Amino acid sequence: MNHSLQDIAWHRSIGQLIDALDKPNFWTQLVRLLDQYLSFDSWVVVLYDGEQRPQVFGECPSADGSPDPLFQDYLMGLFLLDPFYIASREQARTGLYRLSEVAPEHFELTEYYQRYFRLNVVADEIQFNCQLEGERTLCLSLGSQQRFSSEQIALLSLIQPWVLSLLRQRLPYESEVPARPEPPAQHTDWRVRLEASLQQIKGAQLTARELDVGRWMLSGCSSKEIARKLEISAETVKVHKKHIYSKLGIKSQSELFSIFLQAQGNPEL
């Protein structure tokens, strides 16, 4: 059986990564290996656990080595609007996600996109998702200043079994992860946080359905998409939107986004 030198180098690198599973530099080694096969500009490894703040296991260093303030805002609450996070909650599957597959119809028109995504991730993103017990998802995300090509996606699809297996095998060595998933009853649901903030800011009384509509609006869903998700008519969605704006005394999604930031404890971006 003939093997190319590239094949041999790949298998050798995988062997080295297996040996490094319990080492502090594992994530850096994994990312450096991927960087030999495709170009990307940023990366991060996070654990989603219900609607709690994500745990960060590894991330690309900033130019000066200081924490990225935009990413800190993401961890504080913007992750709730992340199409990859939303997809992991809705579909709960292991595999490779592309931005074009999970982003809502109006994603590029959202305040989240304009004030976070295009500044921090820039143009495109792909994510390896490893689904775990207890509504947890371990994710490796790669961001790029250019759109990933079909050839690059095909390559990632080819190697995803190795990557996903390595993610799963690495998890027990992350000291911050409990041995067993803890019940999510001790954290505050995003609706509760948002409603509490709205009470303080505007004295508004939004219904649970209006809160749902508001969140899907902020994530970039069109009225038709929201209607499908909530199993209501598009006209009903429009009525809810009108009530949201009226109760909050606002006229734009930008103002709604500002209220959302305050609800998550974020300063204005």
Rank of each mutant, 00 (worst) to 15 (best):
F260T: 12
G95S: 10
E255Q: 15
R191S: 10
D124S: 14
Q253H: 13
E111V: 10
L156Y: 02
V237E: 04
E90K: 01
W216P: 02
L164Q: 04
Y48P: 07
A20T: 11
P69M: 02
P83Q: 00
K202G: 10
Y48N: 13
R12A: 15
I153A: 14
A227Y: 02
Q52A: 04
P161A: 07
P181N: 10
P178R: 09
A123L: 13
D64T: 09
T188P: 12
A208I: 04
I86Y: 01
Q55F: 02
S66M: 12
D73M: 02
E125D: 13
L5D: 11
F71M: 04
F84D: 11
V31H: 07
L70V: 05
S246D: 15
D41F: 01
S4A: 06
K202I: 00
F257I: 10
G203Q: 06
F148Y: 11
D22G: 08
C60W: 03
I86H: 06
A154Q: 12
G77N: 08
S62W: 03
N129G: 15
V45I: 10
F128G: 11
P172A: 09
E182G: 12
Q262L: 03
L21Y: 02
K251L: 13
N25W: 01
L261Q: 11
F257L: 13
V102C: 03
L132G: 12
R193N: 10
P267S: 08
K242V: 06
L80C: 13
P54E: 08
K229C: 06
F40Y: 07
Q29W: 03
L132D: 10
Y113K: 10
L99W: 01
R115H: 11
Q152G: 08
L218I: 02
Q199R: 09
R89S: 04
S258K: 14
I226A: 01
K242R: 14
W162V: 09
S223C: 02
I244R: 03
G249Q: 12
H3Y: 12
S175L: 12
L17M: 00
Q127R: 15
D212N: 03
A263T: 08
N266Q: 14
S219E: 04
L30Y: 06
N120M: 03
E111S: 15
I86E: 07
S223W: 02
R180A: 14
D124W: 05
K229I: 00
C130N: 13
W162L: 06
H3W: 05
R193V: 04
R180P: 08
Y245W: 09
H106I: 01
S219R: 00
L21W: 02
R180H: 15
W162S: 14
L132R: 11
W10F: 12
N129T: 15
